[in-house]
Amino acid sequence: MHAIVCIKQVPDTTDVKVNPETGTLIREGVPSIVNPFDTYAIEEALRLREKFGGKVTVISMGPPQAKEALKEAIAMGADEAILLSDRAFAGSDTWATAYTLANAIRKIGDFDIILCGKQAIDGDTGQVGPGIARQLDIEQLTYVFKIQEIDFQAKRVRVERLLEEGREVVETRLPALLTVVKDINQPRYPTIMGIRRATRTEIPVWTAVDLPDAKPDLLGLKGSPTQVVRVFNPPPRSGQIVMIEGESPQEQAAKLADLLLKEKVI
């Protein structure tokens, strides 16, 4: 069994603050973390390896410091990691990112399953997973909540996907790309042994030269159809809070009911 996990290093958005004067993001001192959804993808791959044997390869595209994210995956137990990093990849939107990752996956060669988080917490698009699946022309299963059954010999997988109305059980052939939601597992912590191994591991860096099949015109900014033209602060919620006082919860409840009826929201 060979599982490939695609991860992204992201700023910890819980720590992202906006400078009230300039309206810009304050990124100084904001720690970089492995995208939380991707840690579930790594964990799921490790569980598959524990059950079926084989190998887990983790890949990421980003600046040189994204090696740290890959080292974290190694510390959790991943076997190999590759970083795609080149100025030629810079400025990639989701299309170009998926194109580059798909080319790297082709170069890695045989795989049975690709796992990704459902989306990254900085961009929140959820588009790179489906993008990779289409580039590789394999089955895609998004928002996976549980792998019910998987058979690498028969090349079949059955999963539960979390949709708005409930959980859909769907079965398809392998290889497939799965994007996973948070509830699929509880990611493990790196072990001391794992951390030692990660420290020793040299993460290979692939540049555009290492992806000879990738067309230069489709990489980075050149391969990116979308363009950001404006970034601004979200409008603040209008109005002031009205605190509802009262002698008793009943009195407060009655006042609140009046207000909600007046707002016509109930």
Partner: peptide, 14 residues
Amino acid sequence: PAFGGNIMATIICP
């Protein structure tokens, strides 16, 4: 919205 709703971005596809 992006960055967990901390910023808004306007995007085009020219």
